[in-house]
Amino acid sequence: MTGMKEGAGDDPFADDPTPDTDSNSDAAEPVEADNASAESAASSASESGQPMQIPYKFRRDGVQDGRDRVPLFLQPETKNAERDALRELEGRFNGNVSLTDLREALMIVGLDHLNEVETELEEWGYGMTFD
């Protein structure tokens, strides 16, 4: 057969170099860092005797994988704060942070802190009566 590698049962990609970035994410990160984080998670899971749970970032094909699309409309001040938070977290993680991941993380934290969300909504006028 032409065009086939010898030993078709072998992994034809075994000798191919690993690419430096993940082209399916909206923020490319070095594979080296991904592998180090995944290996660290595997190591700590095997030491504790618990089955390894691969973090969502590493088991997805792209940032939209497993997510529903929802519209998000932000006031200019909120959009600016979001941008600043993204830059701050990218500095903390020494690399790109997906805006989609940041938004969902912010949503989850907000859901865990409904009293603070209530306070913000009250500042926007919720709960006001004009009797």
Rank of each mutant, 00 (worst) to 15 (best):
M1F: 08
T2R: 05
T2I: 15
G3S: 03
M4I: 14
M4A: 13
E6D: 10
E6L: 15
G7V: 09
D11K: 03
D11F: 02
P12I: 00
A14E: 07
D15L: 15
D16F: 12
P17K: 04
P17D: 07
P19N: 01
P19H: 06
P19C: 03
P19W: 07
D20T: 14
T21G: 14
T21H: 11
T21R: 15
D22K: 15
S23I: 06
S23K: 10
S23V: 08
N24W: 10
S25G: 15
S25H: 10
D26W: 10
A27Y: 13
P30M: 11
P30F: 09
V31T: 14
D34A: 10
S37G: 13
A38H: 05
S40L: 15
A42N: 06
S43G: 02
S43E: 11
S44D: 03
A45H: 01
S46A: 02
S46L: 05
S46D: 02
G49T: 00
G49L: 00
P51L: 00
P51Q: 02
P51K: 01
P51C: 00
M52L: 02
Q53L: 02
Q53H: 03
Q53T: 07
I54K: 01
P55A: 01
Y56I: 12
F58W: 00
R59Q: 06
R60I: 02
Q64Y: 11
Q64L: 12
Q64P: 13
D65A: 08
D65H: 06
R67Y: 04
R67S: 05
R69S: 14
R69V: 10
P71M: 04
F73Y: 13
L74T: 06
P76H: 08
P76E: 05
E82H: 15
R83M: 15
D84M: 09
D84R: 09
D84W: 01
L86K: 04
E88Y: 14
L89A: 01
L89F: 07
L89W: 08
G91V: 00
G91C: 04
G91W: 06
R92W: 13
R92V: 09
F93A: 14
N94Y: 01
N94E: 12
N94L: 03
G95L: 02
N96I: 10
D101M: 13
L102Q: 09
R103D: 02
E104Q: 08
E104D: 10
E104K: 10
A105F: 12
L106H: 04
M107R: 14
M107S: 10
M107V: 13
M107Q: 15
I108T: 00
I108R: 06
V109M: 09
G110C: 03
D112V: 09
H113Q: 05
L114D: 02
L114V: 11
E116S: 11
E116D: 04
E116L: 09
E116C: 08
E120Q: 11
L121K: 07
L121H: 06
L121Q: 05
E123R: 15
W124A: 09
G125W: 02
Y126W: 06
Y126P: 04
Y126A: 14
Y126M: 12
M128V: 14
M128W: 10
T129Q: 11
T129N: 10
F130R: 15
